[in-house]
Design a protein around this nucleic acid. Structure first.
Length: 472
RNA sequence: GGUGCCAUACCCAAGUGGUAAGGGAAAGGUCUGCAAAACCUUGAUUCAUCGGUUCGAAUCCGAUUGGCACCUCCA
């Protein structure tokens, strides 16, 4: 089954062909753990989970590596900013290690609640300093570095194709110098970047390691190169991230990695678009800081957000609003209700046989393989659920098959046990209403309906007589 | 200044040259004393505008208008 993916490197749809048929190597840029993730951050991780699930659905084994950036992620591209972890540590009077631990845990809590499959390997930057130093030594040997002002820099002029991922125009970048960011006078080229710091403008760096260049800490970009190559080899299949990583972070990763090995590093670069709010780009500093916890507090299930994200294509900007999220919540509830109804009728997972069922499966596969077209695939799910030409076993089997990719947890939905109401007041009122109803005293019956409503019960007049239901 | 993206019904959103998916909301109906639930029905002769290519264009090309993101911590 051919999978087509949009490769940022070629800016075109390409047929996915793994280096090794047995196992696909997938690296996803992980979180910088200095604060909670907002739902825009989480959208990117959801898209990566979707890609991984699709690969698995197609029969690949996936080795998924994700880093945890717990050091050295600076606030300025020019390498002269503050360390976010240090900044947060000062603010909260905790150690940087405590901060990193705390937000790492918070991140994985969100990760699990959104139904994302755990990475094969999760690696912390601070556990891989030796690998980073080795890589820098390799670059040094190859003549790609220079030391200036105490820091080790990567020289972009030492390679022929710097900026190929982002298609950067180096000449215009050189001339368009931003005036609101201090230039690092130690750099030979303004796009050179730091591999190892021994001198930081930000004085009180507490995470420091010994190195051949002195005690210090790694630059931001080296960690992903070092760790991905450590676990996935010098060449691997897919590297993912948000689109913002293209011009700087991924560009610099490629420069380092390919300068070190002399080989093409990654075959497929796949990037997720941003989630926008009403004002445009979502950020942590402006407007409401939208976290998964906040969504839960407002009455949404994490899976509602997952469904919401599936409703748009990963390469399109998606506009977030609570109205849209409510739409997703309702739609997901309707899907779940239908699945529960099928379970109640005793639906079983069976091998698909009918021509109709097989054609639904083929349509779904075609859509999901077409660069992960989840909106279209979701329409296929709806088609299945509404098609009376399918048996309940077929509907159920198809839905669960599709959900290998959607990850909505349909297989584990519980058929709700009908709660027996043992509230004597309510039962007494119901009895009185039934009597009033028999006596055709509609005014009294409606009054009691209202009283029960106030108590939190809904009266349903079913074929088998009036019954009570606890309101959600 | 550079690099990309987008403009489709009330809202969200697919559509990758062959005659507009899906969801939500809404309206009408069946059922019901009422209500709830469920089910059925209805939805863009049209895809920002103007040209062009083509037997055929929402889809390709050009222009115009409007919007967005990235290049700055950010996914």
């Amino acid at each position: 089954m051919p999978l087509s993916l949009y490769n940022t490197m070629s800016r075109s749809l390409e047929r996915f062909q793994p280096i090794n048929d047995e196992e696909v190597g997938l690296y996803t840029c992980g979180p910088t753990v200095y604060n909670y993730a907002h739902i825009g951050n989480l959208r990117t991780f959801l898209f990566e989970d979707l890609l991984k699930r699709t690969l698995i659905h197609l029969g690949y084994k996936v080795k998924h590596v994700m880093n945890i950036t717990d050091v050295g992620h600076l606030t300025g591209d020019g390498d002269e900013g503050e360390d976010k972890l240090e900044k947060m540590a000062q603010k909260t009077k905790k150690t940087v290690w405590d901060i990193a631990d705390f937000y790492t845990n918070a991140f994985f809590s969100d990760y699990g609640q959104l139904g994302m499959l755990a990475p094969t390997i999760t690696c912390k930057a601070t556990d891989h300093i030796p690998q980073m130093i080795d890589l820098i030594l390799r670059l040094e040997k190859g003549g790609h570095t220079y030391v200036s002002g105490g820091n080790v820099y990567f020289s972009i002029d030492s390679i022929p194709d710097y900026g190929k991922l982002a298609r950067l125009d180096l000449e215009s970048l050189r001339t368009a110098v931003r005036d609101d960011v201090d230039q690092d006078s130690n750099k030979k080229n303004s796009k050179d970047f730091v591999l190892w710091f021994t001198k930081s403008k930000f004085g009180e760096q507490s995470m420091m390691w010994d190195s051949p260049w002195g005690r210090g800490f790694p630059g931001w970009h080296i960690e992903c190169s070092a760790m991905s190559m450590h676990y996935l080899g010098e060449q691997f299949d897919i590297h993912c991230g948000g689109i913002d990583a293209i011009p700087v972070h991924h560009t610099n990763e490629i420069a380092q990695s390919e300068a070190a090995t002399g080989k093409t590093w990654v075959n497929y670069w796949v990037h997720g678009e941003f989630l926008l709010d009403e004002t445009g780009k979502m950020s942590k500093s402006k407007g409401e800081f939208l976290t998964l916890e906040l969504l839960k507090k407002k009455g949404y299930d994490p899976m509602d957000y997952r469904y919401f994200c599936l409703g748009g294509h990963y390469r399109s900007q998606l506009k977030f609003s609570f109205d849209s999220l409510t739409t997703a919540k309702t739609a997901r509830k309707n899907v779940c209700d239908r699945i529960v109804a099928l379970k109640r009728e005793g639906a079983q997972v069976k091998a698909l046989e009918s021509e109709k069922a097989l054609s639904y499966q083929a349509a779904f596969d075609e859509h999901i393989q077409n660069d992960l077209n989840t909106p279209r695939a979701l329409a296929d799910l709806w088609g299945v659920l509404k098609d009376d030409g399918l048996s309940i076993d077929e509907k159920y089997s198809l839905a669960l098959l599709f959900d290998e990719v959607f990850g909505l947890g349909l297989a584990t939905l519980q058929v709700p046990v009908i709660e027996t109401i043992d509230d004597p007041t309510a039962l007494d009122l119901l009895k009185k209403r039934t009597e009033a109803k028999l006596a055709k005293d509609w005014a009294e019956a409606d009054s009691i309906r209202q009283q029960l409503d106030a108590l939190g019960y809904l009266v349903k007049d079913t074929a088998s007589g009036p019954s009570l239901e606890k309101k959600m």
